[in-house]
């Protein structure tokens, strides 16, 4: 502004000749003012954290080391992984079915799917797992027969649904509600023209879904499913309440004997972190694979 005496504003009034004459035309980069200060503060805080971790005997690192590869801990990890994979499988299969019903079924299937999602998203997973764990007290025997007329054949519920299966069903049916929403979003992300083109070529509804719509929906589905996998891995720890013998239960059983809760919870945390880190890497690779060639569908709009 003319008349301003503040010299800070005069650096932009230059002679073109001066400007051309300077040797280096690459501007000196600015560093945001807060960066250095912020970095210093964080380093100091990190120092405190390390000091606490090292000096507080309560962390009891020798015990952490002793139990990190304990057999029952490793067995717990195996159970946690099995549970995660089994529950996600149930969740994905049921979720895809629910999403398709909600998308293209008649009014009754659509309502049923909506009701399912309402129920399983609306109640805590912990409660659902407890329900499955106590299913035997609700239905002591399950089998085939006429309602009200007794069983023709039946089995002891505790035998047919062992506690591991109860955990898988509890976690999986709950997961299906979330997967359904994710898959539905994925299906909606595929332009309508794609299934119209498939229709016009004479592909049936299932073939259209399988060869045209689902593969393209995957790009929108994979990242959130990856997140669900990671959160499922941690969520499996709630099955502690029905005694499945997962990682968390293994460590709680150890500390119920030796009363070293903190180091053993650290053991569990380390393993959960290792597993979620691996899953994150897998997720990144999958995203890369399904993103290939899909950069854009169709032409100008």
């Amino acid at each position: 502004m003319s008349g301003s005496t503040d010299t800070r504003f005069h650096h932009d009034r230059v002679d073109l000749a001066d400007l051309v004459a300077i040797a280096d035309h690459e501007p000196v980069r600015r560093r945001a003012a807060g960066q250095k200060v912020g970095g210093a503060v964080i380093l100091v805080l990190a120092g405190f954290v390390v000091a606490i971790l090292v000096t507080n005997p309560g962390f009891d690192w020798p015990t952490v080391g002793r139990y990190l590869f304990d057999v029952s801990v490793l067995e717990g990890i195996a159970v946690t992984l099995e549970l995660t994979i089994a529950a996600m499988s149930v969740g994905i299969v049921c979720g895809v079915v629910l999403a398709v019903l909600r998308q293209s079924g008649g009014p009754i299937p659509r309502f049923a799917a909506t009701l399912y999602i309402w129920f399983f998203r609306g109640t805590p997973v912990l409660v659902q797992v407890l329900f499955w764990g106590f299913a035997a007290s609700l239905f002591p025997r399950i089998g085939l027969g006429i309602p009200g007329g007794g069983f023709l054949v039946s089995w002891d519920t505790n035998e047919v649904i062992p506690i591991f299966a109860a955990a898988v069903l509890g976690l999986g049916f709950n997961e299906a509600a979330y997967v359904a929403e994710i898959v539905r979003g994925g299906l909606l992300s595929v332009p309508a023209g794609q299934s119209e083109a498939a229709d016009a070529l004479g592909l049936g509804r299932l073939a259209t879904l399988r060869f045209v719509v689902l593969p393209q929906a995957m790009r929108a589905i994979i990242p959130p499913i990856g997140n669900q996998f990671i959160s499922m891995l941690k969520m499996t720890s709630v099955v502690l309440v029905i005694g499945v013998g997962d990682l968390l239960e293994s460590v709680t059983q150890i500390y119920s004997r030796n009363y070293r809760q903190i180091p053993l919870l650290i053991v569990a945390s380390i393993w959960y972190l290792v597993m979620t880190t691996l899953l994150t890497l897998v997720q990144a690779r999958l995203e890369k694979r399904f993103g290939r060639s899909l950069s854009r569908v169709g032409g100008a709009r």
């Binding site: 119209e196 004479g202 169709g298 032409g299």
Partner: peptide, 18 residues
């Protein structure tokens, strides 16, 4: 589906499978 398999259709937006 069966009846229209002998009718070819070309769309404004091409609709190739991406």
């Amino acid at each position: 589906t069966e009846r229209r398999s002998r009718i070819g259709m070309v769309f404004q937006q091409f609709n190739l499978f991406g």
